[in-house]
Simulated assay, not measured.
Amino acid sequence: MTRTAVVGAGIVGLAAAHALRARGADVTLYESGPPGGGQSAGQSRIFRHSHEDPRLVALVARSRTLWRQWEQEFGLELISPDGAVAIGAGVEEKLRTLERFAEVPVCRLPPEELHARLPLLAGWTGPAMLDVHGGAIRTLDAVAALVHRLEGSTLREHVLSVRRTGTGSVELRTGTTCETYDHVVLCAGRGTAPLARGAGIDLPVETGAHVRLTFALAAGAPDPGGSAPGTGRGLPTFQDGSGDFGETGVYAAPYPDGRRFSVGLSADTPARPDGGLADPAALAALADRTVAYVRRALPGLDPRPVDHVHCWVTRLPWGDDGVGIWSEDGITALAGHNLFKQAPALGEALAETVLTGGIPGHLHHEEQLGRSAG
């Protein structure tokens, strides 16, 4: 039985530990704080198939299948059935890419249907699309279900170092313990690169800080159950790449109760080499820009934020959706951005890497999965 440590109990670390246990490995999961409390924090994320790299679309489609399997295993709805809406000039290119995948149904949305599905949105008559099997990920439920499955396998410890012993095992040191394992998997968010570097693996991760705000529905918006008036369905997630409302790369997702929407900009403020923020005031500026966008684009929301999520983000240099696995001599590390939706497939891939020694699919970092077209 392979004795494995997984460092980091965000959604990907949880998924990796779950997949390893399902395959018979002896797993210990290390996390210094509440599971899902770092880069996986907050309620609701977008599940979308649309990516510039078709190889990443295929990985996400696999992940959608695994999310359905999790729903059956846990007895929970983990992705809402209401789809993912996108608007802007990039819609036609997104459709051309997704239409290559028979398992990913998509369609264009004329203005009247767009408004019926998303009455929160201000008037928009440009290109719009629906990713039918997209939706809002029930993030807190997913984390809680995995934590329950892994009960008894998690240690609340801060990992200081990992190193190869030279005798075929890997040493892992925390504040109060020292253990050896056959394999160590690093899924520790911004802590992954420093731990990997100490073991001789360089990850070209760029770190920044991000803000996501939550807004309540305004008076006259969809009812508390989340149904768009007259449609009998819940509200979809939303991406705006148009620029017509003053921002590009905006995303929004409804909470499970249908009363609130989380909204964020695809922007962050960079970190200094020592790990601190280069400009702490920039986070406040991002929040102000988000509020201003909601006032212009989403009049169905009350523009006074009711909640904030601040988190670190880790990007690879080849693209905002870039992801990669590094694996050498008993140490495997994962890095990337926008990974929540991919968690089941990434957990499966990390388990395969540990147990077979080979990185599956296109996830080896040299393949630059999620590479931007530009």
Rank of each mutant, 00 (worst) to 15 (best):
A5E: 00
G8H: 00
A9F: 04
G10V: 08
G13K: 03
A16V: 02
A22H: 09
A22S: 12
A25G: 09
A25T: 11
V27N: 04
T28P: 10
L29V: 13
S40M: 05
Q43T: 13
F47A: 14
H51W: 08
R55F: 08
V57E: 03
A58Y: 11
V60G: 06
R62Q: 15
R62L: 11
R64D: 08
T65K: 00
W70E: 06
W70V: 02
S80P: 11
P81N: 02
V85I: 15
V85Q: 08
A86D: 02
I87P: 12
A89D: 08
E92V: 09
L95T: 05
R96E: 15
L98E: 13
F101W: 04
A102G: 09
E103Q: 15
V104T: 13
V106M: 12
E112R: 12
E112I: 01
P119L: 00
A122D: 14
T125I: 04
P127K: 08
L130Y: 01
H133P: 00
H133C: 05
G135F: 09
L140K: 06
A142V: 10
V143A: 06
S153T: 13
T154K: 11
E157A: 14
L160S: 11
L160W: 11
V162L: 09
V162Y: 00
R164K: 12
T165F: 03
L172D: 00
T174L: 12
G175I: 05
T177N: 08
C178F: 00
C178L: 14
Y181W: 15
H183Y: 06
H183C: 15
V184S: 07
L186Q: 03
C187P: 10
G189Y: 07
A193M: 07
R197T: 11
G198I: 04
G200P: 08
T207H: 14
G208I: 01
G208V: 00
G208E: 11
A209G: 12
L213A: 06
T214E: 07
F215Y: 02
A219F: 03
A221V: 00
D223Y: 05
P224F: 09
P229F: 02
G230A: 02
R233D: 07
R233T: 13
L235D: 05
T237N: 09
G241L: 06
S242A: 13
S242H: 12
D244W: 10
G249P: 07
V250K: 03
P254G: 06
P256A: 01
G258L: 01
F261S: 00
S266G: 14
A271H: 15
L277P: 12
A278W: 08
P280A: 01
A282I: 02
L283K: 09
A285G: 15
L286E: 12
R289E: 15
R289T: 06
G300A: 00
L301K: 03
P303Y: 10
V306T: 14
D307F: 01
H308P: 03
H308V: 09
V313M: 15
T314H: 07
R315F: 06
D321R: 11
I325T: 08
I331G: 10
T332L: 08
A333I: 13
A333D: 09
F340P: 02
K341A: 05
K341V: 03
P344R: 04
P344W: 00
A349K: 04
L350T: 10
V354D: 07
T356N: 02
T356S: 15
G358C: 14
I359V: 15
I359R: 05
E366T: 14
E366Y: 04
L369S: 13
S372E: 15
G374K: 09
